[in-house]
């Protein structure tokens, strides 16, 4: 079955969802947002595609298996505990680096962001794994 409206809407909505999910991820440390909600939004984009064009198409454009996504997310989370240990000798301690940008602006990157990215990836992976499995089981399309 082909839903024309869904297919056309999906082309525009996908980029919006992915863009805002990344935005939410980055502002998450001090403002509402973060890895979890960002991950949900990102997975929303792929679920949308699965609804519009089928699970297989969505899997193809994801390129990486959801389980690998979970694994890489967990790995980033583990990784984020280490800089604190090497920089300050305290495990899990938050460590920040400031990268100067143009016009006097600076970009602050730190281990909480790394951890959040891990959460982002694993949430996306978990949600997509669940939805893909269910849709395949029910022969959605």
């Amino acid at each position: 079955m082909n839903y024309t409206i869904l297919v056309i809407a999906f082309r525009y909505i996908r980029f919006i969802l992915v863009f805002f999910s990344i935005l939410t991820l980055f502002r998450g440390h001090n403002l509402p947002g973060g890895g979890f909600i960002g991950g949900l939004m990102a997975s929303g984009a792929f679920i949308f595609q699965a609804l519009a064009l089928g699970v297989q198409s969505s899997k193809n454009s994801l390129r990486i298996k959801p389980s690998k996504l979970i694994a890489s997310g967990l790995f980033l989370a583990i990784l984020s505990t280490l800089p604190g240990f090497f920089a300050k000798g305290v495990f899990f301690a938050g460590t920040w680096v400031k990268i100067p940008l143009l016009f006097g602006a600076t970009l602050k990157l730190g281990t909480p962001l790394l951890f959040d990215t891990g959460v982002y990836l694993s949430v996306t992976g978990v949600v997509l794994l669940l939805i893909f499995t269910l849709m395949e089981e029910w022969k959605w399309n």
């Binding site: 389980s67 690998k68 979970i70 694994a71 890489s72 967990l74 790995f75 989370a77 583990i78 505990t81």
Partner: peptide, 11 residues
């Protein structure tokens, strides 16, 4: 942390 790392490897 180590069992968590094992979970990553096993995935």
């Amino acid at each position: 942390l180590f069992p968590l790392f094992m979970a990553v490897l096993l995935l």
